[in-house]
Design a protein around this nucleic acid. Structure first.
Lengths: 280, 280
DNA sequence: ATAAACCTTGACGCTACGTTAAAGTCAAAC
DNA sequence: GTTTGACTTTAACGTAGCGTCAAGGTTTAT
């Protein structure tokens, strides 16, 4: 049986010598012969099919470790089928993710060609965990003139929390149940995040805000003027470009806000729950 | 300006503290304040938009290094557009590759459900470089009864190479110009690979075999009997499952072969040039 | 005062090799 | 027989973007 050195074998099979040495070390493909004096590896042409099997499995997306299992033969056809099915699902997920990425890239390109800039607002998609909060319902005529109403609602909430002796409260937030038909104003809830459940009282209810799998978020830094509208525009454009559909309620988190504080330092996160147009 | 510690900032923005520390080190996002006594990092809520910009760019597929460039602002809108266009092309390539991988996985699944095995032959796709060879034309009636004809052709080639004093010759190969209409047999060329160009003589021509971008290859180990047909079947099924189209000439490389040798030790590589059905 | 939660740097791991680097081996040509 | 050049060996580091300890210091709440 004639043997050849690693370089020739590598050339014939179109792999690098480095890869062959790695496969040797991992036990995927041991040389037919190793000269004990020089440690030179000598391969036989008859080992080509095994190497090609390695390459083919790699091509299917298996890791070298998985290939080692397959080659050791300790897998039934049923197990192999299972691995392939899982691999297929995995690749399908990756393809879907990359297609979504492509649509976002296209949206950016469109934007940069329209406005010659990347824009002032960045939308990110988050998963939001369930969160306890004390809530108080309200009604606002529109978004512009809502601040006094919210101030009153938060005053009531603050009083309740103080009475309950709560200290470690989180940021304030608002929920908007906007349904496009605003004949009777917009139903809202003003709220304060809580680390844990406490008792409800009167029209102040303490409940767990549900988690949201896909929440489109944008952070607005500054006063509540037309720049906030820009932020809203940005997030709505992002949502439509990304092929998502808006659901309710939308949220605003007042990450940095003080009554009477400098509006230039306000930081607000706008959160809009979305779902894919294809399905939930 | 109120600051928060890294853990809170990480929770708000849905990133890990490890990532924030990395962004600090890379200069993407320095904390608003670092306590010189304790080295604690303190972030301001107002840094959220910058972090979100980082996350959004990452989401578009940029590396952290590229994001650093973008954030430093030393890129024009035109350059940004260029980067996005390149990124789009790159993702499109990846998607195409993964879709091809999906079809191959599906083919394997189909095979394993039909035959309950992964099969004896592995097909790999290679790029073949141009290669000098001495060729002699011939004609065979069919694949089964061709061996004596080839033996004669190789004898003639061997004689010519010996006369020319060539020693470092490569393996023998055959080219098949099969066109499905075999009324007059199959045009073939028997050849021997050469390290460099030498002179042609008579009907022995020395020419450079063209490189092939996509060559579907399978290695057959054993005699030229029905198992060789299995190998051919395997490669043809692979090609049709992978959405490729066969072109000519097909090649056979006799990696290990001796006239009168033990057929069980023969090693032959079957190479079929293919191109994608969509286009070349 | 003490515990629990939090922070720091540093080091290693991950994947499948690519890329030097230093030193030893082989084969052909003179 | 020797030179030369192509080839081989092990070893070590690099890749991208963090995850995951580990060992030790800090802050905050009770």
């Amino acid at each position: 049986m004639s043997t050849i050195r690693i370089g020739n074998f590598a050339r014939i099979a179109q792999v690098s010598t480095r890869a062959l040495r790695l496969y040797d070390k991992l036990g995927l493909l041991k040389p037919a012969l190793v000269d004990p004096a020089t440690d030179y590896r000598y391969y036989s042409i008859e080992q080509l099919p095994r190497l090609n099997r390695i390459l083919a499995l790699k091509d299917l997306g298996f890791s070298l470790e998985q290939i080692a299992e397959v080659l050791r033969g300790d897998l039934s056809a049923e197990q192999l089928r299972g691995m392939l099915v899982m691999k297929r699902a995995e690749v399908e997920r990756r393809v879907a993710a990359e297609r979504a990425q492509l649509t976002r890239i296209a949206a950016r390109l469109h934007q940069i060609e329209q406005e010659n800039t990347l824009g002032n607002y960045e939308v990110v998609l988050k998963r939001i965990e369930p969160q306890w909060a004390a809530l108080i319902p309200g009604n606002i005529p529109d978004y512009i003139t809502s601040e006094p109403i919210f101030i009153a609602l938060y005053a009531e909430l603050d009083a309740y929390l103080a009475q309950q002796g709560i200290r470690g409260a989180g940021p304030r937030l608002a929920l908007f149940y906007d349904n496009e038909a605003r004949v009777q104003g917009i139903q809202v809830q003003a709220g304060i995040c809580l680390p844990t459940r406490i008792a409800s009282a009167g029209h102040i209810t303490v409940s767990e805000l549900p988690g949201v799998a896909h929440m489109a978020c944008v952070v607005h830094h500054g006063p509540y003027d037309e720049t906030l509208i820009q932020a809203n525009t940005a997030i709505l454009r992002w949502i439509s470009a990304s092929d998502y559909r808006i659901t309710t309620p939308t949220r605003e988190i007042y990450l940095h806000y003080q009554v009477g504080g400098d509006p230039a330092q306000f930081v607000t996160e706008i959160q809009i729950p979305v779902e894919m147009k294809g399905g939930p």
